[in-house]
Structure formats: C-alpha cells, structure tokens
C-alpha cells in the first residue's frame, strides 16, 4: 500500500543454519514481509559489532543477526562468541541512549523454515511500531 512504512532490515545470516533456514522458508513458499536484505556470513561469530553498527548508522530500520542454535554451531562455538559480541554492542547502544531494540539476535536452524518466517514477521511488526530509523535523517553523522 502506498504511504505505508515498510521497514528495511539488514539480516546477517550464518551460512550453515539461518541462511539455509531462510532458503527453506522461501522454497516452502512461506509468506512473510519482504523486509529483509540478507547478507550471508560464514558464521554468526564473524559478525563484528562494527558491521551491525554500520547497518544501523547507514539507516537500516532493524538489524538481525541469526545463527545456529547454541550447541549446533558448524564451527562448534562461533555463535557463543557472537552472543557475547552482540550483548556488548547492545549494552553500548543502550548506555548511549540509542534504540538498541532495533537489533535482534535469533537462532534459526537449517530445517526451521517456519521459525525463520516467524522471526521475520515478528521483527518486522516490531520495527513497524517503532517507525523508521531516525538516523536516516541525520546529516552530520
């Protein structure tokens, strides 16, 4: 619909689980909002907080980091490190008074197409409520 706000979400999806999960959701023709631009990374542990901050500051309305469930990482422990890094970024943003609720960390396995659909739908709804990322209008970043 014209004029309605469609969030733009950047999704960092791990190659082994979440990207495959997204693929499965697609091939299963599960319906979900077309809000995510996915970036395939080899592991959620590869997602330096700086990448997430880049997406956020360049105007993404939401940023999703998704990886294998704890214990299921293809590299055994990458997602545990990812969780710590994510927690740090979230805390930094919180402490600076930034909208840390625009960041989300979720675990989606390769077989969980419906779970991916649910994560995207839910997160998109949440961002819709928050409105567009006000950072987009700033010119002096």
């Amino acid at each position: 619909m014209k004029g309605e706000f469609t969030p733009k979400i950047v999704g960092f999806l791990c190659n082994w689980c979440s990207y495959a999960g997204a693929d499965l959701a697609g091939t299963s023709k599960l319906k979900m909002p077309p809000s995510v631009s996915s970036i395939r990374v080899m592991c959620s542990g590869r997602v330096d907080p700086v990448l997430v901050a880049t997406a956020f500051l360049r105007g993404a309305d939401g940023v999703l980091v998704a990886g294998c469930h704890p214990g299921d990482c293809h590299y055994e422990k990458g997602n545990y490190y990812a969780r710590r890094r994510f927690a740090i970024l979230k805390k930094v943003m919180e402490t600076l008074g930034l909208e840390s609720e625009r960041l989300r960390l979720s675990w989606v396995s390769a077989s969980e197409g419906p779970r991916f659909q649910e994560v995207i739908t839910e997160f998109t709804e949440k961002i819709k409520k928050l409105g567009p990322n006000p950072v987009k209008e700033k010119t002096s970043l």
Binding site: P49, I88, L96, K138, T139, L141
Partner: peptide
C-alpha cells in the same frame, strides 16, 4: 546514495561510527 537519502552528509562521514566502533572494540 546517502545524500539522496538524507539531503546532505558530513564530509568526512563516520565520526559517530568511529567512536561507537571503538567503544565496542575496547570498552570491555
């Protein structure tokens, strides 16, 4: 892309980004 989106941009950009980046890297 950025000036189209925002109507203008600081040059050089990424000042806030640099400091947030440093906070996440060395804050701990």
């Amino acid at each position: 892309t950025e000036i189209e989106k925002r109507g203008g941009i600081r040059v050089p950009p990424n000042t806030v980004f640099y400091h947030i980046g440093r906070l996440t890297h060395v804050g701990i």
